[in-house]
């Protein structure tokens, strides 16, 4: 699983060297951002069902999508938010890449999924994050950048 620390260790191991000062500096950099990430992950975990249902009500509220798909879409958004929670914890995009984005295109094409609805829902969540009511500015930045990462992958 790719994270800030494992990336550094992999490259050190590939050249057979001990962690150098610059390796340690880069690990330290990720530790410095960690408290904002963990705050964001905690808020997301506590509100994951609310974020999902609010965004789904918004997207399916104007009748532009087949209502029969709402439950499935809700399940998928919940799944993606869980992966974002994991990314916030690891400090890298590893969980989204390995469990969410790898193979996503093929599945979407085979199932003819309405990716536009997903994008709308994720954009809604991104724009509705309440700073500082729900999370701090820094935590929101971490959360939003991962939402953007996923939106770009879906688009």
């Amino acid at each position: 699983m790719k994270s800030a620390v494992t990336t550094v260790i992999s490259s050190a191991d590939a050249s057979g060297r001990f962690p150098t000062l610059s390796d340690i500096e880069s690990v330290k950099g990720s530790f410095d951002r960690a408290s904002a990430r963990l705050e964001s992950a905690e808020t997301l975990a506590a509100n994951i069902d609310r974020f999902t249902s609010e965004s789904l009500d918004y997207v399916y509220g104007n009748n532009s999508y087949d209502q029969a798909n709402k439950d499935k879409c809700s399940r998928d958004i919940n799944h993606y938010l869980r992966l974002i929670n994991y990314c916030l914890v690891t400090g890298g995009t590893g969980p989204l890449d390995e469990w969410g984005i790898a193979g996503m295109r093929e599945v979407i094409r085979a199932q003819q999924l309405p990716t536009v609805a997903y994008i709308e829902a994720l954009t809604f969540i991104r724009d509705k994050v309440n700073v500082p009511g729900e999370m701090s500015q820094q935590a929101a930045t971490e959360f939003k950048s991962l939402l953007d990462y996923l939106i770009n992958a879906l688009a």
Partner: peptide, 14 residues
């Protein structure tokens, strides 16, 4: 390879 963070993630994912 895992670190403390990704170990927690793998456990939660299961």
């Amino acid at each position: 390879m895992l670190d403390a963070f990704s170990r927690a993630v793998v456990t939660a994912d299961s």
